[in-house]
Design a protein around this nucleic acid. Structure first.
Lengths: 323, 323
DNA sequence: AATTATATGTCAACCGGTTGACATATAAAA
DNA sequence: TTTTATATGTCAACCGGTTGACATATAATT
């Protein structure tokens, strides 16, 4: 019922080989013939079957994206750019939301291999680190170290962490606390914490880091245990937002009594919380670089592929750190 | 180089037909043979080629999702749920961000047909309305009327608009303005405006609606042209956020001088702007229903498919409408 | 006139997996 | 002993499209 090449050939009055020649613009083709074939395709509403074609050419033009969720502003924006750039280069994107679960991540990896994807870009939780080392399959990590053979792209987390901490110090804060995710995750974002600690020590100040859990209850605890806190550097904007909310609930004035800096600076955050000082990640550039590295590996040019790409973010000073 | 069934057969010491029988659990299979085959698959790191299989069984288990962007909180969350539910039922998701562009939307439709997807869920801008009426291809619309033959799922926009407007009236507002997107888009969200207008007239109040553009400049204009405005019902939370920001810049106190209600109530918005009163859409339920309707069509049971599904939202009263 | 280029057709193998029909051998049940 | 069930193998066609080799016919160039 669905038209195939044979059907197009019959309607156009040519051979199936000629239709294939027209489809692929290969060999000699007369203009009259070409027009007849295109007209027949339109008339039949014929679409070449990419499944059959992929089987033969051994290429699917599929890229698998494995990230925790599209529901988070950072990942949502990153995935948007990745899909957009991939599509503009003729690739199709298979979306895999791993929800930070190792079992789902592994299942997605298997699914992507069964579906013969041309490459994978991943920025999800990972424990069993070897799963990503698939022979002859290009992989790029975003904000995650997947293997010492897999290129990774991230923002300059150290510099960002440094800038955020330095801003709070420059604004007069001495009692500064950092909130980050679990350090057990192998992510370049851990450098934000490292930078915070280094800058604090360089200024003869005592670093103190809280590890966030899923329910932000640690924030209440932070305020209870440190009523004298003057500055908070949160390792992402959602955490920063909860900090601000908790502070408001406790009648702590921002920025007079407490200064806050976040991280990510996504479009959504900048729209919903424009007053937040933050380190804005170069999300579009990260996406561009990730696709570039992936395509480079696909083209079998992985001799000179740089393993780590660090792209600079931008410190945005908002009202939450004072004027 | 990549192992195929023949290779697995050789290592296991059986025939390729037996390997296929094991893969598909079809026909008689001895337990010892089954174990030998599985061991060989593991040893060779063999993954069945779903491309070859799809060609034969004429099913790809692919679902195409066409939405404007993953970068928007509502779409990001909706796409997250859609992918999650699809994956749990063995489907794979092809992500298509149309960015509200008709040309991209059409290209994605073609791409999805070429790639033999089993179905499409779309919630994007649409003009050329016939493109979605593809013979024998299940399609479901979310928040978009795609055709009078294609089922659509949405929240109860009318009730939500009614609740939002009524809340502002109940809080004492008489001068209430509504901000919505372009009415030329065929979307059930237009019912939010209809409800606003109906409720205003039912209360002997004069409705006034502003159509948002891409740059929110209309919001400045709204305040300039209506300095006496007391309540604003924005048809999504991002617009509401900008309204609040503009009010703050003009030293208009929320909620004392101006009450604001938004729409969507996504996780991200609730986290970044918890004080906002909003009508929360049942995003997860919308996703569940959309997948259910799509799978129903795939199973060729579209005799009794309901064409319109309206799911109730929930009015959340926050601080932006007073106590 | 001879040679080369253009245009289209025929044929068959291939891409990897599925599957039905039928064959053969062994084991279990009647 | 006969019949039925279990287990595995062989074979080939199919899914839709690609493509090279070669054939035939016509047109253009030398």
């Amino acid at each position: 019922m669905k038209p195939k090449i044979e059907d197009v050939a019959k309607v156009a009055g040519v051979s199936p080989t000629t239709v294939s020649r027209v489809l692929n613009n290969r060999g000699y083709i007369g203009e009259k013939t070409r027009k007849k074939v295109h007209k027949a395709m339109e008339q039949l509403n014929y679409f070449p079957n990419e499944v059959a074609r992929s089987l033969f050419i051994k290429k699917t033009f599929l890229i698998g994206l494995i990230f925790p969720t599209t529901s988070n502003p950072f990942y949502g924006q990153l995935i948007f750019h990745l899909e957009n750039i991939a599509a503009s280069q003729g690739y199709k994107v298979l979306l895999c939301n791993s929800q930070g679960r190792e079992d789902k991540e592994k299942n997605y990896l298997k699914m992507l291999q069964r579906n013969q994807v041309d490459g994978i870009i991943a920025g999800a939780h990972n424990k069993g680190i070897e799963e990503y080392e698939i022979p002859n399959l290009p992989v790029v990590g975003v904000d995650r170290y997947l293997s010492n053979k897999i290129p990774v792209v991230s923002s300059d987390n150290y510099l960002g962490g440094k800038q955020a901490t330095q801003l709070l110090i420059d604004k007069g804060c001495k009692n500064i606390i950092h909130i980050n995710g679990p350090i057990s995750l192998e992510t370049p974002a851990n450098l934000r914490r490292k930078a915070y600690e280094d800058v604090m020590r360089a200024n003869q100040l005592t670093p103190l880091t809280y590890e966030i859990d899923d329910h932000f209850t640690i924030i209440k605890q932070l305020f209870e245990e440190n009523p004298q806190v003057e500055g908070i550097f949160a390792s992402d904007d959602l955490i920063a937002s909860r900090v601000m909310r908790e502070a408001k609930d406790r009648n702590i004035n921002i920025p007079t009594d407490l200064k806050v800096v976040g991280y990510d600076g996504t479009e959504t955050t900048r729209l919903l919380l424009p007053e937040l000082s933050t380190v804005q990640q170069p999300i579009k550039e990260i996406a561009e670089k990730a696709i570039e590295l992936l395509v480079k590996q696909m083209d079998d040019k992985d001799d000179d592929i740089q393993l780590e790409t660090i792209l600079p973010g931008k410190l945005i000073e908002g009202e939450t750190t004072g004027d």
